[in-house]
Design a protein around this nucleic acid. Structure first.
Lengths: 333, 333
DNA sequence: CTGTTAGCGCCTTCAA
DNA sequence: TTGAAGGCGCTAACAG
């Protein structure tokens, strides 16, 4: 062994098997028009040399990479992590690879990453894209095939989403059923689709419920936004709070507890998503469970359908389920 | 527009700019040996056509993909998520892409994934590989360049790891300082390196501390393993428990609380890792903080060094820091 | 400084 | 059924 051996190529196998390289190619790809005895010889030669076709070369000639890109706003967000996990496992089961790109909540990066990663993959899945509707609409055709998670329906592009409107409505009905009439809603990204869906749910509920008042307070999407909202919440006089998501709810819960406010005695708190630790706060968090891993798997299916030339489903919606736990209770009289 | 326009190629740009394709290639790659005026013309033509070099073709000819693979045992594990995040951001900053592969704790899959993904990337980073030391040793040369996270030092391959021995030692000293002498250790994967490191710490502490007794109880690595350990822990008579990690600690805490056992009044609990929610359990969890995102970033650096032909650091160790919170308290007399 | 000519490793018509 | 030849889109000698 004087020289490092460069990985064996199809030519090496052909020589060893005593056939042409086209035969090797055909044999390795299971092309039925090859004499079984030759297939055998080729396989033997290939395994003797430890030959595996170079995927990059195949990608170039075949025009597909067996890889799809997933662009995520924040890898630290438990919900996105779960989506990625569901997605990645489903894709792996179909023999595909996943290129992850974390845009770190940067709109411009998000757009750039979608474009860049598309060049080395067969399609891109945009997870809860933060970009504007116009940008998204303009981008999607150039990305095709694409799948979008958690946005409004798009022309020509499958969208997989949780029904935030329905979920929040369940939560509202839940606290209303407990006697609450003065609620506070801790809003996330104001322009986001899911924020709008939540507002719709609120408007709907207010219209349907006598005496129901919901005050909207600006907050954010993470734990710290929740802690920062503690004082405004206390000042609002609300007896129940609908947080944008579990992270915000947990932050609020933590800050409220630190201030000695009784939850749910004095004030009830509801989150959204049902992230892994929502069940273990004190008290455990009432929330609307979003099946994040399933959404990821479903997004993969929508992508796979497109890659297979099948008609993709236009829109797949997941209705969250109400998880009533200890952080919500009867309204104080 | 009668036909879909296939992405413009380097030839199209060459024609439009009125130069040869090698000039386009050179101009686009910033090769200084090109007349500035031509560079200008090429750039103009390229942007007019919306030309971007096909990365797959470049990969084939250059022999590099600007992508590295990261193989992870479980995408649902908060620590691995944090490592991935740190890694991904650091790699992105250097213009590299990340291929993620979740082995779902399957040893065989892990090995296969490492090999497979290596073919389409420039190197692979093995995160806390579950495979045996022999398998790992045999695999690494074939993966080169590779980086390993959380394993013993390897020949020729950089390893980035948290110092579990030191971390657990701090935790033990902490509870010993609180007066505890009868401890229980909830072990994770028995053969794992980090489990062995923890045992070393225990042996060390026992040798150094009069009257210290540590009983090892088999548990696991997730939340449920913790809840399942509640009865054995109670039966052991230990006054303080060292859980394999925060997940296990939280499961135990949850189960103990459900049984009405006072924590830390009757029994103290310490976790390991300091995952995002460790601070928000009731009581908040005492733990050893592992800088997971930094470990990820450091692993990227080790990979990048190898890809740049620089001498890689053989081993980088991160010492966890003790985070004393409410789940540990004075030993009952 | 620029153009021409070979490939990178593989798949796939096209003939035989 | 098999082999020969021509690309996939780009880069890198090698001349001019």
């Amino acid at each position: 062994m004087t020289r490092a051996s460069p990985r064996p190529g199809i030519t090496d196998v052909a020589r060893l098997a005593g056939v042409s390289l086209s035969t090797v190619s055909r044999a390795m790809n299971g092309n039925p028009t090859v004499d079984p005895s030759l297939v055998e010889r080729v396989r033997a030669a290939a395994s003797e040399l430890g030959y595996t076709a170079n995927p990059v070369a195949r990608s170039l000639v075949l025009g597909r990479t067996q890889t799809v890109a997933v662009v995520i706003p924040d890898l630290a967000n438990p919900t996105f992590q779960a989506i990625l996990r569901g997605l990645s496992r489903a894709a792996a089961a179909d023999g595909f690879h996943i290129l992850v790109a974390d845009s770190a909540e940067d709109h411009a990066e998000e757009l750039a990453l979608a474009r860049t990663t598309r060049l080395r993959t067969d399609g891109v899945i945009l997870c809860a894209p933060r970009m504007s509707e116009e940008q998204l609409r303009a981008l999607l055709p150039e990305l095709s095939p694409a799948v979008v998670i958690n946005r409004d329906p798009q022309p020509e592009t499958p969208v997989v989403a949780a029904d935030y409107r329905a979920g929040l409505r369940m939560l509202i009905d839940h606290v209303v059923g407990l006697g609450h009439r003065r609620l506070a809603y801790l809003a996330g990204a104001p322009r986001s689709v899911s924020n709008r869906a939540r507002r719709d749910a609120i408007a709907e509920a207010v219209a349907a419920t006598d005496g129901l008042v919901v005050e909207e307070l600006a907050a954010g999407v993470d734990f710290d936004s929740g802690t920062a909202a503690a004082d405004p919440v206390l000042a609002s006089g609300a007896t129940a709070v609908l947080a944008f998501n579990d992270l915000v709810a947990m932050g609020l819960l933590s800050a409220l507890t630190a201030r000695g406010a009784d939850v749910p005695g004095r004030i009830s708190i509801a989150g959204f998503d049902d992230i892994p630790f929502a069940a273990y706060t004190t008290p455990p968090l009432t929330t609307a469970a979003v099946p994040a891993a399933e959404i990821g798997a479903s997004a993969w299916r929508a992508m796979h359908d497109q890659l297979s030339g099948e008609a993709p489903t236009e829109m797949r919606t997941f209705v969250p389920s109400l998880i009533a736990r200890g952080s919500t209770g009867d309204a104080p009289e």
